[in-house]
Design a protein around this nucleic acid. Structure first.
Length: 487
RNA sequence: GCCCCUAUCGUCUAGUGGCCUAGGACUCGGGAUUCUCAUUCCCGCAACAGCAGUUCGAGUCUGCUUGGGGGUACCA
């Protein structure tokens, strides 16, 4: 752990309880962008102080998804290079050391109230409709000596913060401005739980300070906890970080994003065929903009343009249509060799061995398919007929293109193609136009049947290019196979 | 209930008192290119939540109302 040396230091601090949803991902993205834009440090801290909800798989997936997005953190405990994150569960002694300071200064106290008593108090408050709810500070005035005696006698306890009963706690939020809370509305929050673990509030404040965090960019749901955190900083005599509460991301109906209603996690979108570049780009734009009309941007462009001031305070709805469009844009921007790799991998998955294929041919196919792909797996799916003759033909296509007269046309085309010695795009094209002129047909009427015969589908790249890549012998062979099906 | 946040086209947004008859993008509709499907390119539909106020002038400032979201845990 390095101390803050005046440079920006930010963190992403998830708890390993579930999948990394897009809202969390965006929080990580903004932290990462800000660190990079400011030449600062981005670190990862796992908030695993709730032992009941801890989930090993969630942790594993979280790290995997963060790396997939390209949000590599800069450092970790005791490592060089590929670091692990910080874990709060490794830092229990630190929290106990720090809580002692608060106990000694009188800013925190032992509380022996049972869950049952707390519930009764709460029920009583609800019944009497008092405006102020929360812990009734029952144990607040137990002396240190008495408390220690009771602990020595084996009584269970928690440690609470002694919140001022009057006055206001105020703070400034980078994107929301000045915010004030009446202290009387805050209750004496628990700092150390019965099981000895710190609560989120305590651990995050201690860690953010000790780890030199300069800016806290976190979800909106923390805003009402911030006065408590401010109070904690004040009790310690520490300087609070710059607060920056990010708006939430809602689903397309304005509700909460959830797996039940569709894709919600980073992993979901990866499986759907989205590029990490797309997701980062789209999520970044959901609540931030570069200040000009650019939308499809590279990581570097976004980092260069990133400022906290341009983050919106309003929560945004997730629009998968736009995500889809953006994925197409990013696929267009992708390097062909990179896409070739993805395509080959996909093809292998479909049971097609392409290891012996010449790179030039693969490259040609990528070039033809690239503008037609919206998802990464589209490439392999659309490429199958370049390697394997169709085993069946599109049903609607058959009705449309294999009808009466199609056999005659396909036969003429086949003869024209067979006569070609140079089987390349311009030559094939010329053949079609010459044949059209000679027979009085329209070129448009001559392509349907042979396209379906050769590819099995009705949509795809230009027919001349497609034929060239499939190759003369194979094109003729496939037409021969399909001829008996035509009318 | 109480507290806090929030409010421009269907969606993401630009807009920081006059440049706004409100701009861009996605979606949708139409068209061009074309051998299909895409891509690309044109054109079009579509918004300042409401009401008071401040001001010569308000999408921009203030208040209220309404809508949306969050918090009110020994969960984060």
């Amino acid at each position: 752990m390095s101390e803050n040396n005046g440079k920006v230091r930010v963190r992403f601090a998830p708890s390993p309880t579930g999948y990394l949803h897009v809202g969390g991902a965006r929080t990580a993205i903004y932290n990462y962008f800000f660190a990079k834009a400011m030449g600062g440090t981005f670190y990862l801290r796992i908030e695993d102080t709730d032992r009941k909800r801890y989930n090993e798989t969630a942790l594993h997936d979280l790290l995997r998804d963060l790396k997939w997005l390209g949000l590599q953190w800069d450092e970790g405990p005791g490592c060089e290079g590929d670091c692990g994150p910080y874990f709060q569960s490794d830092r229990l002694e630190i929290y106990h050391r720090e809580i002692k300071k608060l106990l000694d200064s009188g800013d925190a106290y032992y509380c022996f109230c049972t869950e049952e008593r707390l519930q009764e108090v709460r029920a009583e408050q609800e019944k009497s409709h008092v405006p102020v709810t929360g812990y009734d500070r029952h144990c607040r005035n137990i002396s240190r000596e008495e408390a220690e005696a009771r602990i020595a006698a084996g009584e269970k306890y928690v440690i609470r913060l002694k919140v001022p009963e009057t006055g206001v706690t105020e703070f400034d939020d980078m994107i929301r401005g000045h915010i004030e809370y009446q202290n009387e509305l805050l209750d004496d929050l628990v700092l150390i739980k019965r099981d000895g673990y710190p609560t989120y509030h305590f651990a995050s404040v201690v860690d953010d300070h000790l780890m030199g965090t300069t800016h806290v960019l976190r979800g909106d749901e923390w805003i009402s906890s911030t006065p408590k955190h401010e109070l904690l900083y004040k009790a310690f005599g520490w300087k609070p970080p710059v607060w920056c509460h990010l708006p939430v991301i809602l689903d397309k109906n304005g509700g909460k994003l959830s797996k039940r209603k569709g894709a919600a996690s980073v992993g979901d979108f990866r499986d759907l065929g989205y590029l990490p570049e797309t997701l980062v780009n789209y999520l970044a734009l959901l609540g931030w903009n570069p200040g000009d009309d650019r939308e499809v941007m590279t990581l570097k462009e976004m980092i260069d343009a990133f400022t906290l001031e341009r983050i919106n305070p309003k929560s945004a709805m997730f629009d998968e249509k736009k995500l889809q469009w953006m994925n197409g844009q990013h696929i267009h921007m992708c390097d062909d060799t990179f896409l070739a790799g993805i395509m080959k991998e996909g093809l292998t998955g479909l049971g097609i061995d392409v290891s012996a294929e010449p790179e030039a041919r693969i490259a040609e196919i990528v070039k033809l398919l690239k503008p037609r792909a919206h998802f990464v797996q589209d490439l392999a799916q659309m490429a199958t007929y370049f390697f394997r003759a169709p085993t069946e033909y599109d049903e609607k296509g058959k009705a449309k293109h294999f009808g009466t007269g199609s056999k005659q046309i396909a036969t003429e085309v086949r003869e024209g193609l067979a006569a070609l010695t140079d089987f390349t795009t311009p030559v094939i094209e010329k053949m079609f136009y010459d044949l059209a002129a000679a027979t009085g047909r329209k070129v448009g009427d001559m392509v349907g049947a042979v396209r379906l015969a050769v590819s099995g589908v009705t949509a795809g790249p230009g027919l001349w290019e497609l034929f060239e890549v499939v190759g003369k012998e194979e094109v003729l062979r496939r037409i021969d196979v399909a001829l008996p099906l035509m009318g």
